[in-house]
Design a protein around this nucleic acid. Structure first.
Length: 570
RNA sequence: UGGGAGAUCGUCUAAUGGUAGGACAACAGACUCUGACUCUGUUUAUCUAGGUUCGAAUCCUAGUCUCCCAGCCA
């Protein structure tokens, strides 16, 4: 079992008898689609719950209507399931609005909260700065009765948006700014995606999140580093409201049939997942979509979970990445190559092999008769027989990859050259007898002869040549659109803003290239989202939106590791 | 002297006073009908300076650097 500091804490808590079971939650705000960064939180919360025999809820943190949308709720549910997880219960922070309201009344009665008439700008002035203490609001000492009356009228919708807030009465001189009388309710007469027009006031994150955790009986509330400063406030609300000892506060939940067993949750922070060459900011992701730099939230160049899915990345590969990345409190940036490696590792084991030619050059086998046709057997996977076999049509005229031929071969080139020999995958050894060119000197075809002694089953079949290249039969190949994707950003840290360039300046215009390619027939008649290794080229997926058997569309997920390209590039 | 957190190979991450280990990357080689996969090997690290100790990545002191916080966002 993995040994990160969070699992250590969970193990210790369990051993100490603090909890009978581990309860976690994944709590996204439904204001956008999930991205690769969320995969870490999902795998952590669901993974820990599963490993320790507990459960994990999916909770939509929908306390800020206007920014949130049911479209995103559905997208989030879909993405979590795609990643391979199922929640114990689906909850919304908005399910608890009545409980939050009653709890706020309790805080007021206990002298721990007050209604403030300061507007946003005044409140900022009173708050002080990072190095200077704040001052008490002139409304801070209102009586309990007045606060109760005002807050009830806020709830009744009597006041204008922004005219008043409910604030926790803590300490305007605290070094931790979160403790300088944080707002816990604001007036916002906006329809809510879940509760419609029922509420003119909405609770703030710091107040709603910890109480939601408590209501759901969450034992370990995992969140990212920037919330470390919020933990004292988290504990303050949990302790002062004290839900376990005040069942009258959450009776509405029971009346509504929502199983409720409040507990005292513990917040633990870990460092978020950052990936080189990537951006994980909902705002920036939305900007890429909004300004048309990409074709949508599910564009294969996007590092949203939907984008990665369409690109062909696998849930198992993503889970492997999260496992390898580990969990700690250090700020870190994961090398994008690690992600690619994880995806390759998964795909190598799970993707059937096919042949496809992306940049075709005609190769004619002159010692084969016109109309020659054979169906050659190929293994679908080099190491796993359970993938079975397929037949590939072989004829006199073939397409090979243009870059598999060089008239002036560089040092170390193993492929075809004038008078050179190369193995045609699954066929035998061919020799380049003649290079055909057009008037402009462009190579248009290669005339080769096939050595019959090197055919499968012949005594010369195991004769060694340096290179093996792939091919498709020109007559039988199926034309396909193939989208070649590369990293969306050209630099490792597009966010850095060093050298005065903004992140948008680093968008790589070459990140999507569309080519017309030729597929062996068995690669065309497949279902959307089927993944293959096109031998020697990379891993490809049939596009889940645009692919048709009669008009195939494939996305390149990732290339194969290519030591030759690296060597030749030097 | 605002508050909080963190510093270990190139990148992540272990070691909880007792051999600084693993993964990925890189490099070299083997294998190969995919220049893939696989296998073998190699290189590379405890922020600095003091101290405690038989022994320090770990404890103490001082310093340095990095990140987070001044929404009626989450």
């Amino acid at each position: 079992m993995r040994q990160d500091f969070i699992r250590q804490i969970v193990r210790d808590d369990l051993a100490a008898g603090k909890h009978v079971a581990v309860h976690t939650r994944f709590p996204p705000e439904p204001n956008g689609y999930l991205h690769i960064g969320h995969a870490k939180a999902i795998c952590l919360n669901f993974g820990i719950a599963a490993e320790f025999g507990g459960w994990c809820n999916l909770r939509l943190d929908d306390t800020n209507p206007g920014k949130e949308d049911p479209e995103f709720v559905e997208g989030i549910k879909d993405d979590v399931r795609w990643l391979g997880f199922e929640w114990h219960a689906l909850r919304h922070a908005s399910d608890y609005f009545e409980v939050f309201y009653r709890s706020a009344l309790k805080l007021i009665e206990d002298g721990l909260a007050y209604v403030d008439d300061l507007d946003a700008e005044q409140m900022r002035e009173y708050r002080g700065t990072l190095t200077q203490a704040g001052r008490n609001s002139p409304y801070r000492e209102r009586s309990v009765a007045e606060n109760l009356d005002l807050f009830r009228r806020m709830r009744a919708g009597e006041f204008a948006d922004g005219s008043r807030t409910l604030r926790a009465k803590i300490d305007m001189g605290a070094g931790n700014i979160n403790l300088r009388d944080p707002a816990i309710y604001r007036i916002r007469k906006v329809a809510h995606q879940n509760t419609g027009g029922a509420w003119p006031i909405y609770p703030m994150y710091d107040y709603a999140h910890c109480l939601s955790d408590a209501l759901e009986g969450i034992t370990h509330s995992l969140c990212t580093l920037e919330f470390e400063d919020h933990r004292p406030l988290y504990d303050w609300f949990v302790d002062r409201v004290d839900l376990p000892n005040h069942p009258e506060l959450w009776r509405p939940l029971q009346d509504a049939g929502l199983p409720t067993q409040p507990a005292k949750p513990r917040q633990i922070e870990f460092s978020r997942l950052n990936l080189s060459y990537c951006i994980t900011s909902k705002r920036k992701l939305a900007q890429l979509v909004g300004e048309g730099h990409v074709d949508g939230w599910d564009d294969p160049r996007m590092n949203t979970l939907r984008g990665l899915r369409r690109r062909g990345f696998t849930p198992a590969g993503l889970r492997l990445l999260i496992e390898r990345v580990g969990v700690s409190k250090q700020n870190s940036v994961i090398d994008y190559a690690l992600l690619e490696g994880c995806i390759r590792e998964d795909l190598d084991a799970t993707a059937a092999r096919r042949m496809a030619v992306l940049d075709p050059l005609k190769l004619v086998l002159t010692n084969l008769p016109d109309g020659h046709l054979e169906m050659l057997p190929f293994a679908n996977h080099p190491k796993d027989e359970s993938f079975g076999m397929r037949e590939v049509p072989f004829a006199r005229e073939l397409w090979i990859e243009r870059e598999d031929f060089a008239e002036l071969p560089p040092k170390g080139f193993h492929r075809l050259k004038p008078d050179g020999e190369v193995r045609l995958r699954g066929v035998g050894i061919v020799k380049c007898e003649q290079v055909v060119k057009d008037a402009a000197g462009q190579v248009t075809a290669l005339h080769c002869t096939l050595d019959p002694q090197t055919r499968h089953g012949m005594p010369g079949a195991d004769r060694k040549v340096k290179g093996t290249i792939h091919w498709v039969s020109a007559e039988h190949a199926v034309a396909a659109e193939v989208r070649l994707y590369d990293r969306l950003f050209g630099v490792p840290a597009p966010d850095s803003e060093e050298d005065g360039r903004s992140w948008l300046d680093h968008v790589n215009p070459q990140a999507k290239q569309v080519v017309r390619a030729w597929l062996e027939p068995a690669a065309a008649a497949v279902a959307p989202e089927q993944r293959f290794q096109f031998e020697r080229l990379g891993y490809f997926v049939a596009d889940r939106v645009d692919h048709r058997a009669a008009a195939p569309v494939f996305n390149r997920t990732v290339t194969l590791r290519d030591t030759w390209a690296r060597q030749a590039g030097q």
